[in-house]
């Protein structure tokens, strides 16, 4: 295998990396960069636990080959909060008890972030469609849907 040089922005920070080509974006984040907030679930794009933003859009990081992110921008759950405060979505998840075991939470947050970045006041139906690629086995979804709907989108 030939190694591949990539240059990528992850959570606002620029990385110059030399990687094996058969690495998924998920493996790169978790195993090479220590960004273990993104979870590894099914690895076939069914569960959404590994959801990150790729150029602002929610994608399954298990279905992206790491060399494909060359020159692109990735945001993971670690890029969501500020230095000392949680993101409004994270606050809302806590307020609504939308986190039980927590395994789906990073993926849910990133799918919700994509939605709220394009839609300030989503309907319940729009929220449900936005997280339709994310599985949760604890909450029954209602708290998650409520948390996303009630998130105050900052206008700055």
């Amino acid at each position: 295998m030939n190694s591949v040089k990539i240059s990528v922005t992850i959570n606002g920070r620029k990385f110059e990396l030399e990687i094996e080509p058969n690495l998924t974006l998920l493996d790169l984040l978790r195993e090479e960069l220590g960004l273990t907030g993104t979870k590894c679930g099914c690895e076939v794009g069914e569960c959404g636990a590994c959801t990150v933003l790729f150029n602002g859009k929610a994608v399954n990081s298990c279905l992206v080959l790491a060399p494909q992110i060359d020159g692109q921008e990735i945001v993971t759950v670690e890029g969501l909060a500020g230095e000392n405060e949680l993101h409004p979505l994270q606050e809302s998840f806590l307020d609504h008890d939308a986190v039980h075991c927590g395994f789906c939470t990073p993926g849910m947050l990133m799918s919700a972030k994509d939605l709220l970045d394009h839609n300030d006041e989503p309907s319940e139906q729009e929220v449900r469609i936005a997280i339709s690629g994310n599985l949760c086995r604890c909450t029954g979804y209602q708290q998650i849907v409520d948390a996303i709907k009630d998130t105050k989108v900052s206008t700055d």
Binding site: K57, V59, L63, S111, G133
Partner: peptide
């Protein structure tokens, strides 16, 4: 088709 994440890729 698929899910939002699949449709984005």
């Amino acid at each position: 088709i698929g899910s939002p994440q699949i449709r984005n890729r």
